[in-house]
């Protein structure tokens, strides 16, 4: 057992030496693989970030109802009662116009602007939390509320989130297609690298077969090469994305200051990073395996 481990370790160290002997060619291959992988993975990272942002902003779907200016307290009480009795509404929250102004001041950081106002431009409002959640049901409720008197403006806040969701779906599909295509490219790169290696080591393979090497023994270094190249390629993709995010976050910081927000792009989670490395390693192995099974059996000693 120790011996088997030693043999595998030896194969790996030979391959690392071989990579180091040819640093330019090896790193070129690894960088190409890294770039190929970083495109779909980068797309995935951006989508994840947009999705996070959307969730932060959207929360659960709400309907905001703004009352006509000058609606009397009696009328407000009547509307409030009617809303509470509505079957599609879970609960409501009344936001008096003074409170709305204060919230605006606090949450948006526009305190200077608000302080400069001579009168409150905001209407009284209700925030409605519906029981129904599908966009169709929400739109039905919105249309119903629109027909009520004294409700000047009805706004379905989740509408844009739904549009964003559709857009994200489209983005995910695009990333998926890109990932499939570039995975194929990665397999092809490894396939070809291994093919060239087999050709240049033809003599060694023949001799090894003549002195009793099993197919497994002959295959092993090529498979390990594919695995190591895939792993390094995945790591290169990770670094490329990390570096790009760093640049993007630096360019985001003036924007953040302007809006007093703290939004920054997040890199892959640990799980996603490990999946990336695992996947690129698998693709490297696959390319090597395909190449070896294509080319090795043709080499027979004479």
């Amino acid at each position: 057992m120790k011996n088997v481990l030693f043999q595998h370790g030896q194969v790996i160290s030979i391959i690392l030496q071989r990579l180091l002997q040819n640093p330019f060619a090896s790193s070129l291959n690894i960088i190409v693989i890294g770039i190929a992988l970083s495109l779909p993975i980068g797309g995935y990272v951006l989508l994840k970030n947009v999705q996070n942002l959307a969730h932060q902003l959207a929360g659960t779907p709400q309907i905001s109802v703004f009352l006509a200016t000058g609606t009397s307290p009696d009328e407000i009480a009547r509307i409030s009662k009617q809303l509470k009795e509505h079957s599609a509404i879970d609960r409501i929250e009344f936001v008096p116009r003074d409170l709305a102004l204060k919230q605006l001041q606090v949450s948006t950081g526009l305190s200077d602007v608000v302080a400069g106002l001579t009168q409150n431009p905001l209407p009284d409002a209700f925030i409605i939390y519906p029981t129904a959640l599908t966009s169709q049901q929400l739109e039905l409720l919105r249309d119903d509320l629109k027909s009520w008197s004294k409700l000047e403006h009805v706004q379905l806040d989740s509408a844009w989130a739904h549009k964003l969701e559709a857009l994200l779906k489209f983005g995910r599909l695009a990333v998926f297609i890109l990932a499939a295509l570039l995975s194929f490219a990665l397999v092809a790169i490894t396939f070809n690298t291994i093919r060239l290696q087999i050709l240049t080591q033809r003599e060694e393979i023949e001799v090894a077969k003549l002195i009793g090497a099993t197919n497994g023994f002959i295959r092993r270094p090529f498979l390990y090469f594919g695995i190591i190249q895939g792993l390094f390629g995945g790591a290169a993709a990770w670094l490329i994305i990390a570096f790009s995010l760093l640049l993007l976050n630096i360019s985001l910081s003036p924007l953040n200051q302007l809006y007093a927000s703290s939004f920054s792009l997040q890199h892959l989670s640990i799980n996603d990073s490990l999946t990336l490395l695992g996947f690129s390693t698998y693709l490297g192995w696959l390319g090597a395996w395909l190449s070896v099974s294509q080319h090795l059996w043709r080499i027979e000693p004479k």
Binding site: Q7, A208, I211
Partner: peptide, 11 residues
């Protein structure tokens, strides 16, 4: 060394 490597001999 090659034939011994192939047979997996102790180093």
């Amino acid at each position: 060394m090659l034939p011994l490597q192939i047979c997996g001999f102790d180093h």
